[in-house]
Design a binder for these strands. Structure first.
Lengths: 251, 251
DNA sequence: CAGTGGTCTAGACCACGCT
DNA sequence: GCGTGGTCTAGACCACTGT
């Protein structure tokens, strides 16, 4: 039996594109449990007519939900709520780093300030922090060590305009941000394996070309303003991640 | 200066949806280096007219490429080739199988069976699967390819005692397990960067010593019996991960 | 078979970047 | 102000699912 579309709230007076509002509304209904796993969503044509939207717009909303793994499209059949999902209220995965583990195990984790400089944002930083050409950033380069051994290098870039009052330096970056009410609320992190160039390899005391984990992280304030872009290289032999995978999504 | 669209090959006689063919053609051009990082792609309207397609179709192709991280859209400016990003990124918050993941991206994911053998468990397997010395395992080695290009190697080890009835071979491992009521319910996955030795590098068609992502995963049945230990090597330039971080993880 | 999602067309208006 | 991507409309045909 197909879910009655009347259960799907949609307030056209809210701000933003229609497909995003619709996707958010359905996503919230799934998170609340109003739409149980396996439930068939309204058909694209039906919902479009009910809401006075075009089918393309409804499709855009369904597609956004499918990209987040909340629903699943089955050709010739319908769109269905996926099982065991919502990543927001109760993340099904937990990501922990070796450095966190080390801290927990009482290892002596330190960091050394390599550089602190202001400059015009690179293209990479412009894209990550959604700045405009010519905007300036503060760049904070730090070497991460555990028990005196260098494990990784982090370069954090912050929009200069937002960080005038922040005391950057030896201390914790997040503590300094927090003191100015600039605590990150969310983030997205990319990870991949790369070979180290000569410069970074030298700082990490490993041969050039050694495998390393490249991490790129963008952190956002609660209003979705990007506040920090950090690019880190960690020695492959000294740093890794553990992800717990819960739920029946192992297909 | 904008790239002339004549450089973008597109063969309407080929099979599959037009947007996918177009995306693949552009993706290959980027992989070959014909389209350097930072290059502006043809405008959506321009390319649509040149190819006799609608703008929506070109947008679908560009969107697919953006989802794979190959290009980046800048509103009011254009679509640009991204620099040095892995061709594929697997979200950690929505774990899916390799082939499922690629299918969602419209790629032709295949796998080639390299080896299927029974043998005594190694120390590594004993620890991961909590077996006793002398216990035997089934080892399934597969090469993972996307659009014919080798991206990774997976070696799955399963306790022989639990998998007597399972038909292992060319098909999906999880489907075969599921048929015998041995579906994994949970898993734990470790990730780190390594350099490839000669043998694996050869199979992946990259130079020895290239950076790769090493994945080790143990899957458990709902009663916490370990059912599968998989050790995978994925090319660092072709596969990465994305993680969403919520408040508490940002320290 | 009827209904569904998958794809595609040929337009349109908007907010934003660039010059 | 012009061109760009971002969004949206109102149709259309196809392959597939389910009965």
């Amino acid at each position: 039996m197909r879910q009655s579309s009347s259960r799907v709230l949609y307030d056209p007076a809210a701000s933003g594109p229609a497909y995003r509002q619709l996707a958010r509304s359905i996503g919230e209904a799934i998170a609340r449990g109003d739409l149980a796993a396996g439930t068939a969503l309204p058909t694209e044509r039906g919902l479009a007519e009910d809401l006075g939207l075009s089918r393309v717009t409804v499709r855009a909303a369904y597609r956004a939900l499918a990209e987040d793994g909340l629903i699943e499209a089955r050709a010739g059949s319908g769109n269905y709520v996926r099982g065991a999902t919502p990543a927001f209220e109760q993340p099904l995965w937990h990501l922990s780093s070796f450095s966190e583990d080390m801290a927990r195990r009482g290892r002596n984790a330190t960091s050394r300030l390599l550089d602190l400089a202001h400059g015009e944002a690179t293209d990479e930083e412009l894209a990550a922090l959604t700045l405009k050409g010519g905007d300036r950033v503060v760049r904070l380069s730090r070497l991460r060590l555990v028990d005196g051994e260098p494990l990784g290098i982090e370069v954090a870039s912050l929009p200069e305009a937002l960080t005038q009052a922040v005391q950057l330096g030896e201390g914790s970056l997040y503590a300094a941000l927090s003191a100015q009410d600039l605590s990150p609320a969310r983030g997205i992190q990319r990870m991949r394996a790369v070979s180290l160039d000569e410069d970074v390899a030298g700082l990490l005391a490993v041969p050039p070309g050694s495998a390393a984990m490249l991490l790129e992280r963008v952190s956002f304030l609660s209003d979705d303003t990007p506040i920090e872009y950090t690019k880190s290289h960690y020695r492959g032999d000294a740093y890794g991640f553990v992800a717990k995978l819960d739920g029946g999504d192992l297909t």
